[in-house]
């Protein structure tokens, strides 16, 4: 593979030479490993999640079972389940838009993940081939990155982080509610732990690991300062967030998949396909 450079008389940073080649064909690379496997896997898993979550969000039914509420529908601001905060579907909801409680809230966690630093790097590769993988040629020759519109909007990630904190609180409250089962005969609520309770507990733990390891949070709690030695609370917070941040990719994927599984669990229990076993 030949490289070509031309003399450039302009006095700029690349004063001596000007690059003119050699990458032109999409996917060309000298790499000999299976570089395409990782972006392909990311593409398949993320696409599957988006398709499933969209489908589940539009269903509007089988999203709760006993004390369990699917995380895709939490918090249920309006809806027909006992988990609803403000009663049934509001009158102001446009008739031409299909109704589902999930449509009111899913945008927030969705945008939190969409603007996440880890996911950004990952889906730029897998969905936009920008680049497809390291040292692999791209399909486009123009590039603006996150320097201008629209991707400059990724900089508002921290605002979705603030919203994500509330979701963690709501989902933790759902776990608390999942500990109280209603007796079908007496109607009394009694303490218990079912498999579904554990599913929701794991969901909160994984989402907590993901949210509390966020790069923006790491910055806000301590990274913003050059000296943490005189601020013990900030220093501890920074260390804790940094600890989670080192495994941000793992938390991101596990929490994503577990949210989907939690919805599947509640849905199949509600449909009578699966039985929720009570442990206590």
């Amino acid at each position: 593979m030949a490289q070509g450079f031309q003399a450039d008389s302009q006095s700029n940073l690349m004063a001596e030479t000007n690059y003119v080649g050699p990458f032109s064909r999409f996917g060309s690379t000298s790499r000999k490993d299976a570089w395409w496997v990782q972006p392909l896997l990311v593409f398949l898993v993320l696409s599957s999640f988006v398709v499933y979550a969209t489908w589940a969000a539009f269903q509007g039914k089988h999203y709760f079972y006993g004390p369990y509420l699917s995380p895709l529908y939490s918090p249920e601001l309006f809806g027909d389940s006992p988990h609803s905060w403000f009663g049934p579907r509001p009158d102001w909801w446009p008739q031409f838009i299909p109704w589902s409680p999930a449509l009111l809230i899913l945008w927030a966690p969705g945008l939190f993940r969409l603007t996440c630093y880890y996911y950004r790097g990952t889906y730029y590769k897998a969905f936009w081939a920008d680049p497809p993988s390291c040292t692999v040629s791209e399909p486009r020759k123009t590039y603006r990155g996150e320097h201008s519109f629209p991707l400059i909007l990724q900089n508002i990630h921290r605002y979705f982080l603030y919203i994500a904190f509330f979701f963690l609180i709501f989902l933790s409250y759902d776990v608390w509610r999942a500990l109280w089962f209603t007796d079908p005969v007496s109607g009394e609520k009694t303490f218990g732990i079912g498999i579904g309770t554990l599913v929701l507990v794991i969901n909160v733990v994984l989402l907590g690991g993901y949210t509390l390891g966020c790069h923006s949070l790491r910055h806000l709690v301590g990274g913003i300062r050059d000296r943490l030695s005189g601020a013990p609370v900030r220093r501890t917070a920074y260390r804790c967030v940094s600890c989670l941040n080192r495994r941000h990719m793992m938390w991101a994927w596990m929490s994503l998949l577990w949210v989907a599984f939690s919805d599947v669990y509640v849905r199949l229990c509600s449909m009578g396909v699966w039985t929720d076993w009570k442990i206590i």
């Binding site: 390291c134 991707l151 790069h215 790491r218």
Partner: peptide, 29 residues
């Protein structure tokens, strides 16, 4: 702003500097 966080730089660093997580992203923030 041109950096789109693909982490290729971190991947090839022979000194194992976490370029993206510890330098670029904190600077972006």
């Amino acid at each position: 702003g041109y950096c789109n966080i693909t982490k290729c730089c971190t991947q090839v660093c022979p000194e194992d500097i976490h370029i993206t997580d510890n330098a670029i992203i904190p600077l972006k923030e």
